[in-house]
């Protein structure tokens, strides 16, 4: 057992636990996005940031990847931590504004505006799908490609991977691909929040980041109908 100080309380953690594990054990809430109990830790979303060390020498670390050690001093909700978390949410919001998960996080943390250019990329590179495919589904169909601002997730050569079994695990776990939030109604300005939720992914394939390359077959994402055709044609131009 290791004794650490969390938010001023002395708590005991087991060897090998991360700060996040310890916080969960004691019921201290730390928000996460790229963390999933069944998958390896990634530390990509930076939402679980906590402040460690004593003033004035504190630093921010991702609690999901940081293992506890003797004499560790952790603060999970200081001004600095909350400010940084809000910034991360704002940045993710700019990339995937239609994600229900991220919208929920934004309202929870009081992020009311997004100062960045909205990019609508529908992928925050949390890597959940990659780890899901690899660790739980035993496939190695998708992975990260390129780097820097060009970094993206795809299959080899952007074609249907030979290893893909169409299990849909990537779609199941994706925080941007789940229910899509349509935001406030422009007529009433009332959000009506979850009444406006659309269970389908997208109307047409062009915008769909589906690595199964089998548009419409599963029927989850792509709506059938005349609307789809016209939009597809427009997309090809």
């Amino acid at each position: 057992m290791i004794n650490i100080i969390m938010n001023g309380l002395e708590v005991r953690a087991e060897e090998g636990w991360s700060i996040l594990d310890t916080a969960k054990f004691y019921g201290i809430e730390i928000p996460t996005l790229c963390y999933n109990e069944g998958l390896s830790v990634y530390g990509g979303c930076r939402l679980c940031l906590v402040e460690i060390g004593e003033t004035p020498k504190t630093k921010l670390v991702s609690s999901c990847t940081y293992p506890v050690h003797k004499g560790l001093v952790v603060h999970t909700d200081t001004q600095r931590v909350i400010r940084t978390r809000r910034m991360m949410i704002e940045l993710m919001l700019a990339i995937a504004p239609n994600s229900k998960t991220i919208q929920d996080l934004a309202s929870k943390f009081g992020v009311k505006q997004c100062r960045f250019k909205v990019r609508n990329e529908e992928c925050v590179l949390c890597g959940l799908c990659v780890r899901m495919c690899r660790e739980q589904m035993g496939g190695k169909a998708i992975g990260f490609q390129n780097r820097g601002y060009k970094r993206r997730i795809s299959t080899p050569f952007d074609m249907r991977s030979e290893e893909c079994r169409l299990c849909g695990g990537c779609m199941y776990i994706c925080p941007a691909c789940q229910l899509r939030c349509h935001g406030p109604d422009p007529d009433t300005t009332v959000c009506n929040a979850c009444l406006q939720m659309d269970p389908t992914c997208l109307d047409y394939y062009e915008e769909l980041q589906c690595w199964m390359y089998d548009a419409g077959r599963c029927g989850t994402c792509v709506k059938e109908g005349p609307e789809k055709e016209t939009k597809e044609k427009a997309g090809h131009k």
Partner: peptide
Amino acid sequence: AEALRFVSQTLGIPLIDIISVATFYRSFSL
């Protein structure tokens, strides 16, 4: 592409991992 597939099979590395490496470094080109 064929060469990468062959390397993947011979070394037992998943193709996507080879692509990740090949697209990460600028000295490689697909």
